[in-house]
């Protein structure tokens, strides 16, 4: 059985430029509670504790969002994403435990798993459910991927989630990576798609066929860059594969809520998202790339290519201006 993991209220916060409110969380969670989704992830787009001028100041603080979700989720688990370097144990993780979070996902750039050791070990020592997330998982070879996943499992993570943060994968990339992890590690494997190349849903379905057991998606695909794999589309596909799949109604109700409440934030696959996905650059950079390409009079494609060449990681928003400036001065 697949655990469907809803990132609308976290990754979607990227698309909403971090304007998520407790009112929206409340309304969304009331439907999610009835939907058959396994967990709802809530917080700033870059995870709890990330609100900043660098990656975007959040309109509502993490605790207010988590409390609104907790009050409306009983059967469904409340989850958070946290990135060491933004989130600290004392300032962010401990208050999240106190707010009643059920699942803690600790994410790092795919080559930097050692930075998550303290966070994962702390949570596992507190008997909390903790998952490791490999962000930008395309940016490493297969052998490296497996060894980084093994580190996370060794620290105490009970699942390892592959994030296609750049939306760079096509289905065969997903199959190769999920299969390798399933063979090499004993913990659960999850997959998180982005739709930059238009294959987010196909990638999620391929992950299911490759025996991943946690599948991420968001209503209407609300998420960074070209968005995630739309959860309702994953579900309708999954219903053709599995007889006891969740029914579709509540998923459609959630997507309808997103469509009506956030009409100006709905993501889609665009020429820019295809360029960023193909160049393997973090989807969340899209607003800055658009703005700075215009400001410095350089093309978005050249800027995405250059960001790809310099292998930027999530959180390096401040380098985009410097690189745009360099391109202008070429």
């Amino acid at each position: 059985m697949i655990s469907f993991y809803d990132v609308t209220l976290r990754d979607g916060n990227h698309a909403m430029r971090h304007s998520l409110t407790p009112e929206f969380v409340r309304e969304y969670c009331q439907i999610a509670e009835q939907s058959g989704v396994w967990a709802v992830e809530v917080g700033h787009g870059n995870g709890i504790g990330a609100s900043s001028f660098l990656v975007g100041k959040a309109k509502s603080d993490d605790n207010a969002l988590l409390t609104a979700a907790r009050d409306n989720l009983k059967k469904v688990k409340l989850a958070i994403h946290a990135i060491p370097g933004f989130a600290t144990i004392k300032r962010d993780i401990i208050p999240a435990i106190e707010a009643g979070v059920d699942i803690f996902r600790i994410g790092t750039h795919v080559t930097e798993v050692t930075t998550a050791q303290k966070h994962i070990e702390y949570l596992s020592g507190q008997n909390q459910t903790v998952h490791g997330v490999l962000m930008m998982s395309h940016a490493i070879d297969l052998k490296g991927l497996v060894s980084q996943a093994k580190l996370m499992a060794g620290y105490g993570a009970s699942a390892v989630v592959l994030m296609d943060s750049a939306g760079n994968y096509v289905p065969k990339d997903v199959a190769i990576r999920v299969n390798a992890l399933k063979q090499e590690i004993r913990v659960q494997v999850g997959f998180h798609a982005h739709n930059n190349l238009g294959v987010g849903v196909s990638n999620a379905i391929t992950a299911i066929e490759s025996d991943a057991t946690i599948i991420d998606g968001s209503s209407m695909g609300l998420g960074a860059g070209a968005g995630n794999a739309p959860l309702e589309s994953i579900i309708v596909n999954y219903r053709r594969m599995e007889s006891n799949a969740p029914s579709l109604d509540k998923f459609l109700e959630m997507s309808h809520l997103v469509e009506t409440k956030c009409p100006n934030y709905l993501p889609r696959t665009t020429s820019s998202s295809i360029q960023s996905g193909d160049a393997g650059v973090f989807s969340g950079f899209a607003p800055q790339v658009k703005q700075l390409a215009a400001e410095f009079g350089v093309s978005q494609e050249d800027l995405w290519q250059e960001l790809g060449k310099r292998r930027l990681v999530a959180g390096q928003e401040s380098m985009i201006r410097e690189i745009a400036q360099d391109l202008m001065n070429l």
Binding site: V55, G85, T111, E112, T115, R310, R311, L312, V313, G315
Partner: peptide, 16 residues
């Protein structure tokens, strides 16, 4: 905020 980047050639230390 701390950001680590494993890129080769290495990224020069910078602070914004």
């Amino acid at each position: 905020i701390l950001v680590l980047n494993p890129a080769e050639p290495p990224v020069m230390m910078r602070t914004t």
